[in-house]
Design a protein around this nucleic acid. Sequence first.
DNA 1: CGCTGGATTGACTCGGATCAAGTCGAGTGG
DNA 2: CCACTCGACTTGATCCGAGTCAATCCAGCG
Lengths: 240, 240
Amino acid sequence: MDNRFIEKLAGFGQLGEDDIAALGAATSRPQQVAARRDLIREGDRPGPVFVILEGWAYRYKILPSGTRQVLAFLMPGDCCDHHVGLLAEMDHSIQTITPALVATIDRAEMDLLMDNRRAIAKAIYVAQLIDEGTMRAWITSMGRRTSIERVAHLMCELYLRARNIGLTHEPRLTLPLSQLLIADSLGMTPVHLNRVLKELRLGGAMTLQRGCLLIDDPARLVQIAGFDENYLHRRLRHAA
Amino acid sequence: MDNRFIEKLAGFGQLGEDDIAALGAATSRPQQVAARRDLIREGDRPGPVFVILEGWAYRYKILPSGTRQVLAFLMPGDCCDHHVGLLAEMDHSIQTITPALVATIDRAEMDLLMDNRRAIAKAIYVAQLIDEGTMRAWITSMGRRTSIERVAHLMCELYLRARNIGLTHEPRLTLPLSQLLIADSLGMTPVHLNRVLKELRLGGAMTLQRGCLLIDDPARLVQIAGFDENYLHRRLRHAA
DNA sequence: CGCTGGATTGACTCGGATCAAGTCGAGTGG
DNA sequence: CCACTCGACTTGATCCGAGTCAATCCAGCG
C-alpha cells in the first residue's frame, strides 16, 4: 500500500486493520491537482479536509501591503486542519507547489471518523501536535535566530520530515521550492536568502540548487542551525 | 460560577449541564502558584494538563545562545496542550507571570473527558484551532510586519482576548507584562521596543505604562497593526 | 535611605533591505 | 540550429531599521 497518509498515522498509534481500511476508504478517490492551484483561500468557509498524498503544497497569507508570508510547507502524508470545519472561515490560504494528488474527506465523514475511531482520532492529534511544535520552531526561528541559522534550521526540518516519509536519497532531497518561496517562509528577501545560501555552500554545509537539496556536512549544518534533533521524532512517546 | 475555563468553552459549543458539571469537577481543586514559577520545563515528560483560572503565564523557549523566545501568552481560561500526554517530551517551558490559580487535570481524566464527552472535546478543539490561528498570526508578524506594526498587532490581540473574557475596563487593560517579556515575544530588543512604545504613545494610538495598557485611539491602532478583527472572534462558526 | 530591577535615552554599528543590473537555463518559434 | 523570451537565480552598491553598548532615571522596598 502506498498511501503516505495512512503510513504516517500508523506510525503515530497502533491502528487496527479496520482503522486502516476506514482511512483507505476515506482517501480512495484522490484527485490530481496542477501546480500553483489554491486548494482553499483565506476567507473561504472551510469545506472538506484535504490530504496531500503526493506532491508539495504550502499555507500562506497575503498581507494588505501585498507581501506574502508562508506559514507551513505540506508534503505527502500531511493533512490540512482536521477540525477547520468548526470555524467560520479560513484565516489563510493553501496552494499546491508541484502537481499533487489530493484526497478530500468531507466534514461529515471526518466527524464520523473522529467520533467512532478513537485510535484514528488520537493519531491525528499527534500529527496536529507535531505540526504545532513545528510552528513554535518557526516562531523561535523568526524571532531569535540569525538569517543563516534560520535557513539551516528550515533545511534540517524539511530534510528530516522528508526522510521520515522516505523521500530522500541519502544526502540528497528533491526540494521543489523556489528561493522566493523559501524567502517568504523565513521572513527575508530573496536577494538576501540567495547570499545566505551561497555562504552555506561555500562553508561546505549544504548546497541548494536546481530544486535539489544536498547536505554536504550534516554535523555542521545541524550545528549552524542549533537544531534540536528531537523535536520532530523523539517527541513521540514510545508506546509503553 | 466564575470558572473562566468553563465559560470560555461554553462559548465555543453548546455544553449540557452534565458537561459543565464534569468540567467543574475536573478543575475543582486548583492550586495557587506564585509568580515566575515554571509549571513545566522543556524536556519534561508531559504530565497533567494545566488550566489557568486566574493570572497570566507564558510559553517560552531558551536557545543555546541564552536568548529567550516567548511563544504565547496565556490568560485566564486558557488551557495548555490538551493532548501533550501523547508526546514524549515538552519542546518548551511554561511559566507564570503573575501569581496564578492553576487547575491540573491528569492525563487519565483528560482522556476520559475527551473520549466520553464529545461536546467538551469539540469545544476544546475549537480552542486549539484558535490558538493555532494565533500562532500563525505571530509567524506572520515576525516575518512580514515592521516593528511598530508587530507591537500594535500584539496589543490588539491581547486586548481583544482579554475583552472576550471580561478582563478590560473599557479603553484600559491591566497588562502585567514587562517590556523585556514583550520584546522577547516579538523578536526585538527591549531598547527598541521601548522606542516603538514611545512612538505609539506620541502618535496617540496607545499608551503602555506601569502594567497598564490604554488604547487611546482604537481605530488608529488597528490601522497601524493591519489587524484583521475577524481572526479571533468571527472565526467561530455560528451554530446553524 | 540606599538598593535593585525595570524603563528610558543617547551614540554608534551592522545585518539585511532596497534598488539595479546582469546571468543562466528551459522552452518556443523561425 | 539559433534567436527570443521569460522566470529564476546572482551579484554589486547603497541605505536604513534595529541591535549593541552604556548611562541615567525612577519606583518600590527591605
